[in-house]
Structure formats: structure tokens, C-alpha cells
């Protein structure tokens, strides 16, 4: 899932300075299950914003709603009705949700309430960890199912670096060293020898470095109207 966290209230009040009637829009998918932008978080944030603005002597109305999926046009279409009365939309969706709203409602100010942080999973209740950076060329087959792109602080392909100590990464002692994990996993599977192979430099053009990425599936596209 996409994991996000709410921006500090002070950043949001500064962002919303001057607006008087705002619609807070949550998303019922990833950010709901990571407790950043579901129905309840929309309620908490909206209430907090109303109180903060009332205390500032600049009362602001914050209406609340949550759509099932902010990143698809169909799901946000119903918001069009009644949008005129709001001078801004505060999205509690991930960055994709914010942009979907902004694309669908180009005349509206659409503002992000969350800091979208990573693709990951909950490792225990209340703790989420990164697992993938969408590098566009998955190497999990080589690395025993542990991603060195997102989990090694130096994105090494021939790790571990010299800072790995006691199973932990040199960057912080609470973060496991990805290459220690990779070694343990492959060793357990009797495949540790594979780590002796030198992995060549990666082609990062499939990643962010290649510019905005796009996937096209011709089999799924709608036929051109003139052919229908």
C-alpha cells in the first residue's frame, strides 16, 4: 500500500491562510488503512483546523467527505456537485489522489494534507516500513525477495557496505541492514553462493531517472470512436 502521514497542523494552517470554506476529502483505500486520510482522520483534522482557525479569530468552515478511491476519476466525479461553494479542496489522499482531484477540477485550488512517504506494509500495529520504490526493473529474484533499492540506504547491488554492524544499517541502529537480510535469506535457501556474482550497474532509466513513467496496454484501451 501507499503509506503517508499527516502534515503538521501548523503547515496546514499556513497553507490554508485566507481560505474560508474548505472541503476536506479523504480516501478510503491505502491512506485509510495506514490511518492517515480515512473518514476518521478527515474528522480529526477538520475538527482541529476549525478549532485552530477559531482561536486565530479567522473562523473557517471545513466540510468533510471521503471517497472510496481518490486516484480514479470515476470515484471523485460525484464531488463536482456542490463544489462551487468551497474555495479550496484539502485532499487527505496520497499524492496521486491530490493530483487526480487537481486534474479533474482544474479551476479549484487542491492542497495536500498528507506527506506521501512510501510503498510499504505494516510490520506491527502502528508501524509501517518501506518495501518498494517502483524502480521499474524488479531484482527481488536475485536478492532473495528483499529489495535493495528501497531497503538499503545506498541502494547497493553488491552489498553489504562496510557500515553494516550487528545486522543493522549504518544509517540508524533501528533499521536492519538490507544486505544482512539478503545474505541470511539466501543462505537459508542454500543460495548464498549467488552473492559472489557481480551484479552489473543498473539501468536506472526504468526508474525515476528516466523521467515520468507510463504504462500502456493496447489490449485494454478503448477503440477509437471512429471505429466503433
Amino acid at each position: 500500500m501507499i503509506v503517508a502521514k499527516q502534515k503538521p497542523l501548523s503547515e496546514l494552517t499556513a497553507m490554508l491562510d485566507g481560505y474560508r470554506n474548505v472541503l476536506a476529502v479523504g480516501c478510503g483505500t491505502c491512506v485509510t488503512v495506514c490511518f492517515a486520510g480515512g473518514v476518521k482522520e478527515v474528522g480529526i483534522l477538520a475538527s482541529a483546523l476549525r478549532m485552530a482557525r477559531r482561536l486565530d479569530g479567522q473562523p473557517m468552515s471545513v466540510a468533510e467527505t471521503t471517497v472510496q478511491r481518490q486516484c480514479e476519476a470515476e470515484y471523485i466525479a460525484p464531488l463536482a456537485e456542490g463544489l462551487d461553494e468551497f474555495d479550496a479542496i484539502l485532499s487527505l489522499g496520497c499524492g496521486v489522489g491530490v493530483q487526480t482531484l487537481a486534474e479533474r477540477f482544474p479551476d479549484k485550488r487542491v492542497l495536500p494534507a498528507l506527506d506521501t512517504t512510501f510503498m510499504g506494509l505494516p510490520t506491527e500495529q502502528g508501524v509501517w516500513e518501506e518495501r518498494c520504490q517502483g524502480c521499474g526493473h524488479c531484482v527481488l529474484d536475485i536478492t532473495g525477495g528483499i529489495c535493495p533499492v528501497s531497503r538499503c540506504a545506498k541502494q547497493l547491488m553488491n552489498g553489504p557496505c562496510g557500515g553494516s554492524q550487528g545486522g543493522m544499517c549504518e544509517v540508524d541502529s533501528d533499521t536492519p541492514c538490507a544486505w544482512q537480510l539478503i545474505w541470511e535469506r539466501l543462505d537459508r535457501q542454500g543460495l548464498a553462493d549467488r552473492l559472489l556474482e557481480i551484479q552489473p550497474p543498473r539501468d536506472w532509466s526504468t526508474s525515476r531517472d528516466g523521467g515520468p513513467r507510463r504504462i500502456v496496454r493496447d489490449d485494454l484501451r478503448l477503440p477509437p470512436p471512429e471505429d466503433v
Binding site: 540506504a153 545506498k154 541502494q155 547497493l156 547491488m157 553488491n158 552489498g159 557496505c161 562496510g162 557500515g163 549504518e170 544509517v171 540508524d172 557481480i198 551484479q199 552489473p200 550497474p201 543498473r202 536506472w204
Partner: peptide, 28 residues
Amino acid sequence: LTGDHQSHGNHPGAKNVHDIDSIQMVRM
């Protein structure tokens, strides 16, 4: 060298590169 992580240095907010790693660099 791979290089120490920038979080230990004086520009912790810097972007790191790690386009290639030290072994790939030796070969290069």
C-alpha cells in the same frame, strides 16, 4: 569507495547518488 551515508555528515538533507556501487566502480 561506497562512501559514508550523508546522514552522518554536514549536509544530511543532500540527495545521494549511488548510481553504481563500489564493486561496479572497480570494474568500471
